[in-house]
Every structure is written in structure tokens, then in C-alpha cells.
């Protein structure tokens, strides 16, 4: 049996970054992810949603959690309708930043999760994060 739960969080200001990562944390705790995994995913969400607020102004964060008999998993999709990332390959490099940050957000977030997909064009940037663990 597979159980799926889905929630969407609007990203409008810095407070919503908090709501998004706390919601993810709670959802993950509910289905049995450990606290280290919760912190990893919450940090990745924090990085990416902060980018949304900083560069695009607003966006949406969809969090889907699923449980089957063999696996627990969380999928997070963060999308915004801002100007897009001009050079995605460059943005994925460590230390590259256009906004005066540390330049560790995007590549760091990728390392924090199991699967990371990014597509960006002016008007729509979509990032998918995924983490799964065996169900114990």
C-alpha cells in the first residue's frame, strides 16, 4: 500500500522559507526519516527557497511525501516565475554567485539530497529534490 501526502507552500517573503522547511521537516518526521536527513532536506529547501525570494521574488514549494511497504520518500518541487538562471552549469559550480552569497547554495543543495533536477528558462525555474530511504 502506498500512502501519499501533498502540500503546497506559497513563497512570498523570508517567513515562508521558514514555513516551507519546517513543514518538510515535520512531514519527514511523520513518515520516519531520521533527524540528520530532516536537517539535510530542510537545509536544501532553505537554500533554494531563499534563492526564489532573493532572485525571483515569489514562487511555490510543493512537498510530496510517500510511504510504501519498502520505502519512504520525499519529493520537493520548487518553482518560480522569475528571470531564470542564465547559466545553469555555472550556477551549479561551487563558489559561483551573482548575488554576493557564498555560492554554495545550489551545488550544496544538490549534494544534500539523493536526486536533484533543475530546469530554468525566463519565466519558469523548476527544481526537483528527492530523498528516499528503506522503510523500516
Amino acid at each position: 500500500m502506498i500512502e501519499i501526502s501533498e502540500i503546497s507552500i506559497d513563497l512570498r517573503n523570508e517567513d515562508d522559507i521558514l514555513i516551507a522547511r519546517q513543514t518538510a521537516r515535520k512531514k519527514m518526521a511523520d513518515i520516519g526519516f531520521g533527524s540528520a536527513d530532516q536537517t539535510r532536506m530542510a537545509t536544501a529547501i532553505s537554500e533554494l527557497t531563499r534563492n526564489v525570494i532573493k532572485y525571483a521574488g515569489e514562487g511555490v514549494c510543493h512537498i510530496v511525501t510517500g510511504t510504501s511497504s519498502s520505502e519512504i520518500c520525499i519529493k520537493v518541487e520548487i518553482e518560480d516565475y522569475g528571470p531564470g538562471i542564465v547559466d545553469v552549469d555555472k550556477a551549479m559550480e561551487d563558489g559561483y554567485t551573482t548575488g554576493g552569497g557564498l555560492g554554495a547554495g545550489l551545488p550544496g543543495a544538490k549534494r544534500l539530497v539523493n536526486d536533484f533536477q533543475i530546469e530554468s528558462q525566463p519565466g519558469l525555474t523548476k527544481i526537483n529534490l528527492e530523498m528516499s530511504r528503506p522503510h523500516v
Binding site: 533527524s35 536537517t39 539535510r40 537545509t43 537554500e47 550544496g108
Partner: peptide, 13 residues
């Protein structure tokens, strides 16, 4: 915390 330390290292900070 251990979780934070681990996460920061993964982030590359």
C-alpha cells in the same frame, strides 16, 4: 549540533 555540522560540510561551507 552534529546534524548542523554534517550539513554545513556537505554544503561546502
Amino acid at each position: 549540533s552534529p546534524n548542523v555540522a554534517q550539513t554545513l560540510v556537505t554544503l561546502g561551507v
